[in-house]
């Protein structure tokens, strides 16, 4: 299933103004492409790989939208403020924020240094906080908005995952619930999507036995695709999904 196909039936995004952090590859790119295919205006951020960003721009263009692309770290408040200010001016508002940017390291606890912890927390948690806070000024003014944080099954299940990564994804759940409670009165929803193991990214490099273990526990008996996750993401931030907030939605094949 292609990403643009997965977005069908998730609502009309015509004219919606959607920002996806970490949108240059993987799940972030799939979500951005799905937004574009559903008629949205799309902006993505990325931190490192210019070639990936250009590929994402081309993929979004291929479904009919000229994406706005920003380079910088989500943990850099100046970058975050600049992106949101630019979009608010260009689009006169922001309807959807997907906090997708995240990093991990494959390390046992003994090798996780303070700097590793700080870096993962900065990108995965502080970055989501900074972008959410920045867009909220726009969304509260509009009395409308949808924020989606991308978690991970590592925070939902007791599995072998790097402690700082699992902790950061758990923190996103707290951030989601607390923020949903605080801004619900402005018509803003905040939800969390917790993907299982996907056929791109981490699963590609995990040793086969680790993937096999996952599949043995997974009722669907297979890995997810980024297109499937993009479809779920679009549903969660669609106008039609107006009464769900503070929710954690696992899309993990039933793990």
């Amino acid at each position: 299933m292609r990403a643009e196909e997965s977005s069908r039936g998730t609502g009309d995004f015509d004219g919606e103004r959607c920002l996806v952090t970490g949108g240059s590859r993987g799940l972030g790119r799939a979500i951005a492409v799905a937004f574009a295919a559903a008629g949205a205006r799309v902006a993505i951020t990325y931190s490192r790989d210019d070639a990936d960003a250009e590929e994402a721009r081309a993929a979004i263009a291929a479904v009919g939208t000229e994406a706005l692309v920003f380079k910088g770290s989500v943990a850099d408040s100046a970058h975050v403020d600049a992106v949101v200010r630019a979009l608010a001016e260009r689009w006169d508002g922001i309807d959807v924020l997907v906090n997708n940017a995240g990093i991990t390291q494959v390390l046992p606890v003994a090798l996780v240094d303070e700097a590793d912890w700080d870096e993962v927390m900065a990108v995965n948690v502080k970055g989501a906080f900074l972008f959410a806070k920045a867009v909220l000024r726009v969304m509260i003014r509009a009395r409308s908005g949808r924020i989606l944080n991308i978690g991970n099954f590592a925070s939902e299940r007791m599995i072998e995952a790097p402690v700082h990564y699992a902790a950061s994804k758990s923190a996103l759940r707290g951030l989601t619930e607390s923020l949903a409670r605080e801004v619900g009165r402005y018509g803003i929803t905040v939800n969390l999507l917790a993907p299982g193991l996907l056929d791109e990214g981490l699963a590609r490099m995990l040793p086969e036995h680790r993937v096999k273990e996952y599949l043995e526990q997974c009722p669907a008996g297979r890995l997810g695709t980024v297109a499937e996750l993009a479809g779920a993401a679009l549903f969660l931030v669609s106008r039609g999904n107006s009464f769900m907030t503070g929710a954690k939605v696992a899309v993990d094949g039933g793990l």
Partner: peptide
């Protein structure tokens, strides 16, 4: 296990 995943 770099940020950009390698194949096995």
């Amino acid at each position: 296990f770099p940020r950009r995943a390698l194949s096995r």
